[in-house]
Design a protein around this nucleic acid. Structure first.
Lengths: 141, 141
DNA sequence: GAGAGAAATGGGTATATACCCGCTTCATGG
DNA sequence: CCATGAAGCGGGTATATACCCATTTCTCTC
């Protein structure tokens, strides 16, 4: 019997840890992590939005998104308010400080992106992302 | 100016979350997560080994590995003992229960691996992993 | 053999992630 | 208008991850 192939998941996790560390290091002058930067970017794109929608947009669990918003709110980069028209919903929105942090981080992010792209072909990663749907159908089988 | 390309890191993290969830779900009957399974596998391969070496093998931070061993030790799958020849070192070793858990999980892992490989070409992921060294040199630049 | 420095680790802190459960609030059928 | 169910959310719990700092132990040099 052939040896088991190396664990695809372990490989992927290892790569992701390294890449995350590279982006986090690059963003450190802006006091942001790549996860936080990503959330701010989604907020910039969508405008004020409920936590559930925000989580769906990031493909994160709702409760994860709720918790990830905590440090951003604490630092005043995001404001969370109750939707007057539907008191169940908490709406997240960029503050001015949030926009400023995003602007400060953008060149740092671009540099990290460029550097990482020299090691990992962006097309290869984009291709993996495009196959996510396929994974879902395999799971439902 | 062209629109910024999608964040390579965000894409990678998203894929990794989904793949991790798939493996975790598959391993659930064995009450193991893919991270824990991976550690047990390394221990099986290396035999008793210090935490620092174990962390290096998994490309994890030392303190992360120390904490990841906690649930495994609590469940009796791994035993941690002080190295008599060097009292600084704590040696991690598979227990019989650990070997049994690994054996029970192996077919579940194989099934997950096979399923995920239908969505993500293993060669593509292996290729990413093989480029990790290149990322390191880019960082040191 | 004693002191300087290195190595192994743990603990504190912070974030990231997801599950389940329960609470509040809304919408809808009768 | 009220009961029922659905939707949005927070909190509890557990794991995963990494940084920094302190402590213990070892090693090596003089």
């Amino acid at each position: 019997m052939a040896a088991d192939s190396p664990c695809l998941c372990a490989n992927l996790r290892r790569v992701t840890r390294a890449v995350t560390a590279a982006y986090d290091a690059a963003l450190q002058p802006a006091s942001l992590r790549i996860t936080q930067f990503s959330i701010l970017r989604i907020l910039e794109r969508l405008g004020p939005v409920g936590v559930t929608r925000l989580a769906a947009e990031a493909a994160l669990d709702r409760s994860t998104m709720g918790r990830n918003l905590d440090p951003l709110e604490r630092r005043g980069l995001v404001r969370l308010t109750v939707n007057a028209a539907d008191q169940r919903e908490r709406v997240a929105a960029l503050t001015e400080a949030g926009r400023a942090a995003l602007a400060a981080a953008l060149p740092l992010w671009r540099a990290a992106q460029a550097r990482v792209e020299t090691a990992f072909p962006p097309a290869a990663v984009a291709d993996l992302a495009s196959r996510l749907a396929r994974l879902d159908s395999a799971q439902t089988d």
